[in-house]
Amino acid sequence: MTERVQYTEFHPRWHRTRFPVFWWLRRRSYLVFVVRELTSVFVAWTVVYLLLLINAVAEDDAAYQRFLDWSGTWWVVLLNVVALALLLFHTVTWFNLAPKAIVARMRGRPLPGIWIQGAHYLAWALVSAGVAWLILG
């Protein structure tokens, strides 16, 4: 669309609109898309938070206690609740879109998307249960 055009009487000027900066506010689906992409920020935050935790656990009882006190302050809890909501949004959107990219076959025939999606949710349930059991059990 960049080629320079010589406008003449018989080739009048084309109208071009500039793509709006806040295009993602113009449609609900675009906004959902941008929120989906921004879940990655909370993925990164979760990694940082867990590394801080592991570092404290590795150090000594006092460091672990300091981490627990810090993680219990209202703004950290609030941040983590928001982060958890967005992580769940990431998981759900990720699993729901997975059948689009993955084509699994059984005896040469492509499996229906709902099976692939179901397998992801099943794996999620198993991993979550396993991790929770390992930590709390």
Binding site: R27, S29, Y30, F33, E37, L97, K100
Partner: peptide
């Protein structure tokens, strides 16, 4: 492509 998905819609 960043998989907005609107093409399919």
């Amino acid at each position: 492509c960043t998989f907005v998905g609107e093409c399919t819609t």
